[in-house]
Design a binder for these strands. Structure first.
Lengths: 134, 134
DNA sequence: GTGTTTGCAAAGTGTTTGCAATTTA
DNA sequence: TAAATTGCAAACACTTTGCAAACAC
């Protein structure tokens, strides 16, 4: 899945039907640039294109669907709203408390030494490392 | 400030007036055991004591005040609700996605190697490291 | 056709706020 | 008695949901 893979193909590769709404969202999300976006902002960007309208509820549902399919990764910060990260590879984040901007940090730059002993029968889902700056 | 420091003294040491509501909240929060508690749960525990009632809004305000004073540290997870951690020393967390239970991880057990280059003029507020298990 | 997805509006969840009454120093 | 704090209810921000209509296969 490279930067110029048609959205249609990305969707079908993940078993998702290429609805008008998902194609519009996909065009913005998977344009080759990593982004951290909230439902509100994605909705605004879709509307700003002026092509067609997509309801906010559908944007929420679409983001959840994409995340479930492994196309996005969600990051929750203090602010209350969820950010969706188009970079699903192993990496960390820097969060600016003042601007509320979230940026990627390559996983190879930072190493976590020592894994905790997980509770019995539990498996690691993922590790979140966030550097909060202000 | 040891485990059996009167709550009254903890409050005054941080410039906080010892109101009935803060004393009640403090008795539960600062009993010597580290805890991760939400506003709802703290409110329920205060009410369960049957001594006196404290409004939920005041519990929210009190938790925010305590956090501002450095008595608590807040941790936000996917669930949407904020956890308040009575352990304000440097440490990390394990979060169980199934039970929604948050536990401490001693900072000495895990080391983060390599600090990111912070954006110009920005200072590090804190580092959050959460191991998500399920 | 059949099951999936959408849009709307309504409900839900967790949190904050305005303001009068109360309490603390 | 002046300033801080509380409680209530209402407002708030973000998200999910129920259900009929529209759509994809």
């Amino acid at each position: 899945m490279t930067a110029d893979t048609p959205i249609r193909d990305i969707l079908s590769a993940h078993g998702l039907r290429p609805t008008r709404q998902r194609l519009l969202a996909g065009e913005i999300l998977f344009d080759g640039c990593n982004k951290h976006i909230t439902a509100e902002v994605l909705h605004r960007e879709i509307m700003a294109r002026g092509k067609d309208s997509v309801s906010l509820a559908t944007v929420y549902n679409t983001l959840a669907t994409f995340t479930g399919a492994g196309l996005l990764r969600s990051v929750t910060l203090d602010s209350g709203s969820v950010y969706y990260d188009t970079n699903t590879t192993d990496h960390h984040h820097i969060y600016d408390l003042n601007t509320r901007e979230l940026s990627d940090l390559d996983a190879s730059d930072i190493q976590i030494k020592g894994m905790p002993v997980l509770p019995d029968g539990k498996t690691l889902d993922r590790v979140d490392l966030i550097f909060r700056v202000k």
